[in-house]
Design a protein around this nucleic acid. Sequence first.
DNA 1: AAAATAATTGAGACTGATTCTCAATTATTG
DNA 2: CAATAATTGAGAATCAGTCTCAATTATTTT
Lengths: 148, 148
Amino acid sequence: MVDHQYAFKQFTDYLRSEGKSITPERLDILDLVLHEKGHFRIEDVIRKNERVSRATVYRTLKTIEDAGLIKYIRTIHDEKIFEVVKEHHDHMICEVCGKIIEFHDPELESLQNDICASRGFSPTRHTMKIFGICPACQKRRSQENTPA
Amino acid sequence: MVDHQYAFKQFTDYLRSEGKSITPERLDILDLVLHEKGHFRIEDVIRKNERVSRATVYRTLKTIEDAGLIKYIRTIHDEKIFEVVKEHHDHMICEVCGKIIEFHDPELESLQNDICASRGFSPTRHTMKIFGICPACQKRRSQENTPA
DNA sequence: AAAATAATTGAGACTGATTCTCAATTATTG
DNA sequence: CAATAATTGAGAATCAGTCTCAATTATTTT
Ligand SMILES: [Mn+2]
Ligand SMILES: [Mn+2]
Ligand SMILES: [Zn+2]
Ligand SMILES: [Zn+2]
């Protein structure tokens, strides 16, 4: 999904450009994060790392975020959920099962830019979350409401 | 901006429909909240209320939120910011001064619905935040970069 | 209106998440 | 390699938010 080689270069370049050290802890966390599929929580990273301390996990996730390699969203329950930054996309979040569906729509993006332009606002990034019910949960519900 | 009379009715109706009591604490908090202009933080409400306990402020804001009269967004620094629910709108948030600009665009809304429909997702609500630089901060910046 | 019942409140303890402190360790620089 | 600067780990501290439970207040019932 994401070129690890390239991500490591991005990260080390970022560290150097900021005068930060390249430490095994930082590289380990990045490696772990790159191997996560989809969305993950901080506690996942803490647990999967016997080696690196909790404090450093927090510090390093922040650093990786600052480097632009990961970002986070908030679920309906306000939980922080991280993900590796790929192409830009937005999210649909199921209020029943919590499933997160990613989508991207160029028309939507350009419309947003138009809206900003019309107000003299210079956008750098955005987040959009649509809450609702995913197809699977809709099906499950309609079945429950139609007993045999 | 919002009809207080009507908001109180909405709230008391909600409380009754849920078998909840109509208490002076709840009415006080709602009143305070309705008098807030724009966006406010929980701590604002706690401070402005010598009378009502912290726990009850939290509980009551949750109740008012459940009644659909307020909602919250997260700033760039992850602070919870409440606001009284008016017509639906989205937000532009200035990364320099923190200013929150509200906007509404029907085209954007219908496009979102189309996108959901095309994926079989049944939307109930959404939040969209565009981060960037507001007109005022843009002007300030360009002036600073053009010394006399 | 008083009694009985049900819900709410306040104070402070508690929780879980995140940040901080600082001495010990490790990376970088020349 | 020595000197210097940055990072780390362990646990203390902080912070927002939640919980407990006895005392209080609202609602419902006689
Ligand atoms: Mn995603
Ligand atoms: Mn708003
Ligand atoms: Zn679902
Ligand atoms: Zn601004």
